[in-house]
Computed example of a mutant assay.
Amino acid sequence: MLVAAIVIPILFFVFFIVTKKERKKYDRLWKRLGDVEEIDTVKGIVASKITDKKRFYQHRYYVSIEFRIQTNTNKSIRAIYEKPIQFTEEVEHEPPWKTGDALTLYGSWDNQQFRVNRIKEGLEQ
């Protein structure tokens, strides 16, 4: 009995420390979720958009907006914009961008899709 009285609290403490480190690691990843290098720009008109709230880790969520952008050269580009949802924020269910809006997207390419860091309305020169 004496061994169990010593070993069980130690196991709980070790488990607590391990989960605390893991949680900090995922919190850092979650906060950097929307940070993408601005290497390239995409300009065009929103052909369609899908907004979705997704779970990142335990109680951490993020908003994922997938755009289909129609460029001047009639090319359709899939662009993904992801942003972590903070506890203090009220989440807008619909972003301000609508189908038919002209947007300039700043970000970088990831295989066949464009990862967006920031969005400006209008087609900038």
Rank of each mutant, 00 (worst) to 15 (best):
I50G: 00
H59T: 15
K49S: 02
R55A: 04
F16A: 10
I119P: 00
G122A: 10
D110T: 07
L2V: 02
R32Q: 12
E92M: 15
D110I: 03
R23C: 04
F87H: 10
D27W: 03
G34Q: 04
D101R: 03
T73P: 02
E82Q: 15
P95S: 14
F56S: 01
W109P: 09
N74Y: 06
K24Q: 07
P96S: 10
Y26N: 15
Q113F: 12
E22K: 11
W109V: 13
R28K: 13
A4I: 03
K31F: 09
Y62V: 07
E82S: 08
G100F: 14
A4L: 10
Y61V: 00
A5Q: 04
I77R: 08
V18S: 06
S48F: 09
K49G: 01
H59I: 10
R68D: 08
V116T: 07
K53M: 15
E94P: 01
F12A: 00
V14H: 01
E121S: 11
F56I: 06
Q113G: 02
K49E: 01
T51W: 02
G34F: 13
F12T: 01
L11H: 00
N72I: 06
N72C: 01
T71S: 08
T99G: 02
R78F: 06
R32E: 09
P84C: 09
I65P: 01
W97M: 13
R118T: 15
R28T: 09
S64K: 12
P95T: 14
E121V: 05
G34E: 07
F114E: 09
K25T: 09
P84M: 07
A5D: 04
K24H: 12
L105Y: 13
P84D: 02
R28C: 04
I8D: 00
K20E: 11
W30V: 07
E38W: 03
D101H: 10
E89S: 12
Y57F: 13
Y57P: 09
I10V: 15
I119A: 05
K120Q: 13
V116E: 04
M1S: 08
Q125F: 11
F15L: 06
G100D: 11
I50T: 11
I85Y: 08
E90R: 06
I39D: 05
D40S: 14
K25H: 05
L105F: 14
V3Q: 07
T104G: 06
A47E: 13
P84G: 06
N72S: 10
G44W: 01
I77H: 03
K20C: 01
H93R: 15
W109L: 09
Q86K: 12
T19F: 15
Y81S: 10
Q125I: 10
Q86L: 14
T88K: 09
